[in-house]
């Protein structure tokens, strides 16, 4: 029983991390059709900013956390302004390849300007200590992660349903032209979308950092790849789909960890992606894919 609860919590915390990142990708995609490959570098930027703040200003973990969140938001908005605005109205593959290029540039800049080797940042370890609840050993980090994600999703839902910006963003995901005709600035809607996406990436960055304790140039790649897979699984561009995909992926991953014998540990990814591929055979556009109109809508 202990073991089962432990694994469920594992699945929830993995899933929470993927859901945070997948939501960030889905928000940007739903509004401007951009597959943001540079999302991982925003996480890495957050990680490096932790290192910068710790070594230049203070090691106070709350300052570090707030600083990393700010840097992630700023980096995300800045990327939109500099790199993605010229391709905003281009087709999906142009945006995708631009983001791909941006990701390459940032990764190599980290490598060139900071270091190709991992840099240790240990002042977030305090988030992670074992506690006993009703006789079951659990880690606080997993609880924090799951709870934070739940709160973030609730706040996001309130933001999207109640605030005028949120409503504009939801409308923009249906018909951007119409939203602009209603007198809402396209630039603002897109900037807010990127800011929200950056904030979610920053949150994920804190938890990944508390678990791993070091940052390197390809730091963000693996989590974001998983988030992409979660998005595809849930249906690209659908926000509930992103959350569902994230948690489902977490569950599949933990399931594989439990079921696979130790000697196959290195092949975990292969099995996880294999199962995802099978789900995609069943629903090629993802589980909660919005009904797409493929014909011309001029």
């Amino acid at each position: 029983m202990d073991y089962a609860i432990q694994q469920v919590l594992n699945a929830l915390s993995f899933g929470a991390e993927y859901a945070l990142l997948a939501l960030g990708l889905a928000i940007v995609f739903s509004i401007m059709g951009l597959v943001n490959f540079a999302h991982g570098e925003i996480i890495a930027a957050g990680g490096y900013s932790m290192f910068a703040i710790t070594s230049l200003l203070t090691g106070n973990p709350f300052v570090v956390i707030v600083g990393a969140l700010l840097v992630a938001v700023l980096a995300s908005v800045l990327l939109e302004r500099v790199a993605f605005r010229p391709v905003r109205y281009a087709d999906a593959s142009t945006g995708l390849l631009t983001a791909f290029g941006v990701s390459m540039i940032l990764q190599n800049l980290f490598l060139l300007l900071v270091s190709p080797r991992p840099i240790a940042i240990t002042n977030l370890y305090f988030l992670n200590w074992p506690i006993e609840v009703a006789g079951v050993q659990i880690s606080t980090l997993q609880v924090f992660e799951t709870v934070t994600t739940a709160i973030a999703i609730c706040l996001l839902v309130v933001f999207l349903k109640k605030s005028s910006f949120g409503i504009a963003m939801r409308a923009a995901s249906l018909d951007f032209e119409m939203v602009r005709l209603m007198g809402i600035r396209a630039n603002r809607v897109v900037a807010v979308a990127f800011a929200v996406s950056g904030l979610l990436a920053g949150l994920a960055c804190i938890f990944i950092m508390a678990r791993r304790g070091s940052v390197d140039p390809t730091f963000g790649f693996n989590p974001v790849l998983k988030a992409f897979v979660a998005c595809v699984l849930g249906g690209f561009g659908s926000l509930p789909g992103a959350v569902l995909g994230g948690f489902l992926l977490g569950a599949i991953e933990v399931g594989m960890l439990v079921l696979l014998p130790q000697s196959y540990g290195g092949m975990k990814e292969a099995f996880v992606f294999g199962i995802v591929a099978l789900i995609l055979v069943w629903r090629p556009d993802g589980i909660l894919s919005p009904a797409v109109e493929k014909g011309d809508k001029l």
């Binding site: 990701s103 390459m104 060139l112």
Partner: peptide, 13 residues
């Protein structure tokens, strides 16, 4: 180190 990667990225963007 990493200059060639940056150049490739710039070429794409």
């Amino acid at each position: 180190l990493g200059l060639s990667g940056i150049m490739l990225g710039v070429v794409i963007v």
